[in-house]
Amino acid sequence: MPGDSTRMSSYARSVMSVFLKDWRSELRTRYAMNALLMFVVTTIAIVLFSLGSEGAPSDALSGMLWTVIFFSAMSGLSRTFVMEEERGTTFTLQLLAPPSAVFFGKLLFNLVLVLGLNAVTILLYLALITGFVIQTLSIFLVAVLLGSLGFAAAATVIAAIIARANTRGTLYPVLSFPVLLPLLLTVINATRLASEGAYFQEAYGEFQILISYIVVVVVVSSMLFEYIWKD
């Protein structure tokens, strides 16, 4: 039906405009990017200092990679919603866009941030930590892509809760960790498989868990977002 397609495209347009609004204001201040980048550099430096010249087993290194990513992400991803509260623009946004469009716009923005963050972290990690080698690139790429999507979805909805709770950053990792842990453990496992040179088929179980996690979190968050967003 023609009516449906115009409604669909206007919905897609409001998702995009929420995303572009955040993107432009991020480019103006570069707050989240700088915070994420500095956090990555700092944590990788700490890993390097603590490892010294000694290597570590590949499963420990895969775990540490995702520890770096988790805490770096926690430093910057709540920004999208906290910013709205700080500037007092929440109310305007509530009037201008339907709640789920706001959610998907912010999710898109966080997804771009997470993908950028992961790319930088992984490149630095591969370059600086000599013991960490990826043997099966296909497993690693799929795991990182799926992991980023799930990560962004869970981080976005928790960020929305945090911003409304007026607690800013302190509670963010506390609330996110239990929700993200199924994802983190699976991604760490897939990374370990990739660094040990497993066949692509061996990681199917991990991919299934990741995909079902993404579906569950995105669906439930988009349904619940309205209750967080509107008073």
Binding site: R164, P178, Y213, V217, D231
Partner: peptide, 22 residues
């Protein structure tokens, strides 16, 4: 962390559901 009762109830309900599905 949330003082206002209605907000606390809504936010903690949402969190409890999200935690329960993961």
């Amino acid at each position: 962390a949330v003082e206002q009762e209605e907000k606390r109830a809504a936010l903690s309900s949402v969190y409890s559901i999200i935690a329960a599905v993961t």
